[in-house]
Design a protein around this nucleic acid. Structure first.
Length: 413
DNA sequence: AATCCACAGGAAGCCCGGGAAC
DNA sequence: GTTCCCGGGCTTCCTGTGGATT
């Protein structure tokens, strides 16, 4: 009998019944505390089953407030009902964080919306955009029916690529002869319509739904509901659900965060070989999740962006907080010289600083220092349990060299 | 009240690498 | 091959601005 490293792990008792249930991509049978939203959405989309055009809508709410889950749930039900009564409806969900240009959304729609289509794929680049658009219209007409185009994280797309796409999509019904379409936008940003052309705004926001963040009690209900199918009975210790819910409630009522906490803490308990998840596991999970989210972001940063981040960190290491853009740029140039790398213009660094801010690695707040000009107050905000220099140096060793040379003489003090 | 700092951030355009079409 | 298109990273040039200082 030869032994295998997996023997022990495989036969180890698991605390999960079905881990998938705890992933936020999973669509549960029931969505607690979202009845009103489900109803409003389905009340509108039922038009598709009657062969009419549903209103375009925008769903607002913070991350993890259930916007995507509700939409997925309703679309799923819509599709099933359509099949049942012989109405052709095509719900299609596009995540505009990954697919974030007009061309890419249109080609994605053209390629996936019509999964059984025999024609060749629309290439990921190469065609003029208007050709992709007319190809999409052509394919939609060939299949007919009512299309429900869901654009998740639509605010992200608009800020990056403008509103041309929305102009075209909300105007689809004028182009279509045999099919119908409506657009559902999902946004984290309540004010993103400020960026829109007034015509697009009025066509898109025919009906709005606002998702309020979950409070701690509601999060508990969600967790209990999911845990029932996900984790073995009695495996959850006292106060664990409550703690997960409380921590997630602090994160703006993010249900996704609550589910992750519960899943990872159960994993931690399992790894320890204990049969009950305790509150300490939740604490461990919290640190772990934070680090798992941030570390890969830092590691995969383009070199120039790493250079900027390291410049911020050098300043802070010298005891300076609330650094200005100019100071970061100054250090950045020196760091580039040190390793013999070409440095970029201040304008570009300003953009990179904004990008690092968006990624949540630093905070950059525009402030006015009166006579001393307008600038940004920049601070890093990387969790304590992560050593960013170490992470960067593992990917590109040169960063430990830069940091070792910490430019002490630059200190303002 | 006027000035003026130290940038913010928009617009246009360049270059590059990817690809399609002819 | 040449010529077209898309998108990302970047530069150049530019106008705008909140409030301490004059």
């Amino acid at each position: 009998m030869s032994s295998n490293i997996f023997d022990g792990i495989l036969t180890q008792r698991t605390l999960f019944i079905q881990k998938e249930t705890l992933r936020h991509t999973h669509t549960p049978e029931r969505l607690p505390h979202r009845d009103a939203e489900v109803e409003t959405l389905s009340f509108n989309l039922v038009e598709a089953l009657k062969g009419h055009i549903p209103s375009n809508m925008i769903l607002y709410g913070v991350t993890g407030a259930g916007k995507t889950a509700v939409t997925r749930y309703v679309c799923d039900q819509l599709l099933r009902k359509g099949e049942q009564i012989g109405r052709v409806v095509h719900p299609v969900l596009v995540n505009c964080r990954q697919i974030d240009t007009q061309y890419r959304v249109l080609s994605h729609l053209g390629n996936t919306l019509l999964e059984a289509h025999e024609e060749a794929d629309i290439p990921f680049t190469g065609w003029p955009t208007d050709r992709v658009f007319s190809e999409l219209v052509k394919r939609m007409d060939e299949r007919g029916g009512v299309y429900v185009i869901v654009l998740d994280e639509i605010d992200h797309l608009v800020k990056k690529a403008g509103d041309d796409l929305l102009y075209n999509l909300t105007n689809l019904n004028a182009e279509l002869k045999n099919a119908r379409a409506c657009v559902i936008g999902i946004s984290n940003d309540l004010k993103f319509t400020d960026f829109l052309d007034p015509r697009v705004r009025s066509r898109l926001g025919q009906e709005d739904i606002i998702f309020n963040p979950y409070n701690a009690e509601q999060l508990q209900d969600i967790l209990r509901g999911r845990a029932q199918n996900a984790i073995t009975p009695d495996a959850i210790g006292d106060g664990v659900i409550e703690l997960c819910a409380a921590l997630a409630a602090q994160e703006n009522g993010d249900a996704r965060c609550a589910l992750d906490l519960l899943r990872v803490s159960t994993e931690k308990a399992e790894q320890e070989g204990v049969s009950i998840v305790e509150q300490q596991h939740v604490r461990i999970a919290q640190a772990q999740i934070e680090s798992d989210q941030v570390t890969p972001v830092i590691r995969t940063l383009p070199t120039q962006q790493k250079m900027v981040l390291v410049s911020v960190l050098i300043n802070e290491n010298n005891g300076l907080r609330n650094i200005q853009t100019g100071e970061v740029y100054h250090i950045y140039k020196q760091a580039c010289n040190l390793v013999g790398q070409q440095f970029l213009t201040a304008r570009r660094i300003s953009g990179i600083i904004n990008n690092l801010d968006m990624l949540g690695l630093i905070t950059a707040k525009v402030i006015s220092r009166g006579r001393h000009g307008r600038s940004k107050e920049i601070n890093s905000c990387i969790p304590n349990n992560i050593d960013p220099i170490d992470v960067m140096a593992k990917a590109e060793p040169v960063f430990s060299e830069i940091f070792a040379n910490r430019f002490r003489h630059q200190s303002r003090l």
